[in-house]
């Protein structure tokens, strides 16, 4: 929020055609343009995903290594899928406002983080549990420390599935982030919000196209990233183990 006086947003005509709207320069540039909204969305989603990775991967790895939390893991999936993200964010907004922290980022960040933690946690846990016992035993026999087994054998062999978990989490975060626009924020959800509020279907469609597009790009980006980061052998191994992303 900058304080500089500037002409405030112009309303988009209700009868504007989708292409006319989408290909107009005003739609893209400026403080209320798509590029700025896109930046807001990408920054938040990247931060959420990153924090989720930092929090879930170590916990899941250690628990899986120790063979703990087998049952709770299954229940965690069920609960997390049923938790209404919107309700959590909405409950946090008044608290955040009253404690002087503003609309953002705490409520939306927390809600999205809860959403992102689970797929990463689960995939990491499952992946490490699927590492062949033989590999772990062999490393142990060679005198590797438990930490070294975890990071250099188990996590290395599980990397591809962990990656898949992060990808799923990131896509879900991108697809859910638009609720932010209904809670005092902006981001790409603004087009959906304004479209609904102003009975402007062009804006709703535009919002869906942008959000769906960003989600698809996110998925693609992870595929590319995986190719760049993970060695071929690890990826081949993952394919043999079968694809488990849900």
């Amino acid at each position: 929020m900058n304080g500089a006086a500037r002409p405030t947003q112009a309303a988009v005509r209700r009868d504007i055609g989708f292409f006319e709207w989408f290909f107009s320069a005003d739609t893209w540039w400026g403080n209320n343009g798509i590029l700025e909204s896109l930046r807001e969305t990408v920054v938040l989603c990247a931060a959420v995903t990153l924090v989720a990775v930092v929090l879930s991967v170590p916990v899941a790895s250690v628990l899986a290594h120790l063979r703990r939390a087998e049952l709770s893991t299954t229940w965690l999936v069920s609960i997390s899928r049923a938790v209404p993200t919107f309700a959590i964010a909405a409950l946090l907004v008044p608290w955040s406002l009253r404690s002087g922290r503003g609309f953002e980022p705490i409520p939306i960040f927390t809600a999205l983080l809860l959403l992102a933690l689970v797929p990463i946690y689960l995939n990491t846990y499952t992946a490490i549990r699927q590492v062949p016992e033989g590999a772990v035993d062999a490393a142990r026999a060679l005198g590797e420390t438990e930490l070294s087994i975890l990071t250099r054998v188990e996590l290395a062999l599980a990397a591809s599935l962990v990656f898949a978990g992060v990808r799923v989490a990131a896509i879900q975060v991108v697809a859910t982030e638009p609720i932010r626009a209904f809670l005092g924020g902006d981001g790409l959800g603004r087009y959906v919000r304004d479209g609904i509020g102003q009975s402007n279907n062009t804006l709703v469609v535009g919002g869906i196209v942008l959000i769906g597009g960003l989600a698809a790009l996110t998925g693609l980006a992870f595929v590319v990233l995986e190719r760049l980061v993970l060695p071929n052998g690890v990826r081949r191994l993952a394919r043999q183990q079968g694809k488990r992303t849900t």
Partner: peptide, 8 residues
């Protein structure tokens, strides 16, 4: 699956 439900 990736489309936001509110928007859909």
């Amino acid at each position: 699956y990736t489309l936001p439900s509110v928007a859909l």
